[in-house]
């Protein structure tokens, strides 16, 4: 199991590096799926099989598919890849990369400095999670429901196609 964790972790890190460095969006998304799958394996090794399933279904499934749909709707040409290449110059990314590395170093220092035992071996199954969700976290579940509702309404409202391409607050839009 330990080995599985390390392999999956390495895969996740590599895939994520690939994601953020790809010029082609579809390639990046494929690596993203790999990354999510690897994280799902990590969840499994940690003893959270239900979460692993959710990770695959929602992240690797729904969200990535959604992004792919949007990319398809935008109907991007070959130039987009070319443009990504121009945008991703070392002079641009070196600064943020160093800063992020600093933050990462600090985080690593914090985590390694801790005197931590190994994790518990008992897997926590879906039943326990469900009991917790609808027990002490009831309010949170309801809030999540409301947030999803707002997300749906917001997405619908924002996603409508306006006939005019000017700012929607400044000019009277043509009736839908």
């Amino acid at each position: 199991m330990e080995l599985t964790f390390y392999i999956a972790g390495a895969v996740a890190i590599l895939a994520t590096i690939m994601v953020i460095t790809r010029y082609n969006m579809i390639h990046a998304l494929l690596y993203l799926v790999v990354s999510f799958l690897a994280v799902a394996v990590v969840f499994f090794t940690l003893g959270a099989p239900f979460m692993a399933a959710l990770e695959i279904i929602i992240y690797a499934g729904a969200i990535v598919v959604l992004i792919i749909f949007v990319i398809m709707m935008l109907n991007l040409s070959e130039d987009a890849t070319q443009q990504e290449k121009e945008w991703l110059k070392p002079s641009i990314w070196i600064g943020p990369a160093i800063l992020s590395a600093v933050l990462l170093a600090e985080l690593i220092y914090i985590f390694t400095a801790m005197d931590v035992p190994t994790t518990a071996t008992v897997p926590v199954d879906a039943k326990l999670v469900g009991l917790a969700l609808f027990g002490p976290y009831m309010l949170g579940v309801q809030l999540c429901g409301m947030m999803l509702m707002a997300g749906i309404v917001g997405a619908y409202h924002l996603g409508r196609q306006k006939k005019k391409v000017t700012h929607r607050f400044l000019e009277k839009e043509a009736a839908q």
Binding site: A12, I13, T16, I17, V19, I20, S35, V39, E84, W87, L88, I92, W93, P96, A97, L99, S100, A101, L103, L104, L107, I108, F111
Partner: peptide
């Protein structure tokens, strides 16, 4: 932490 830092790096690098 590594995944988070990578995500942050991506956020800052890409236009």
């Amino acid at each position: 932490a590594i995944l988070f830092a990578l995500g942050l790096m991506g956020l800052l690098m890409r236009r």
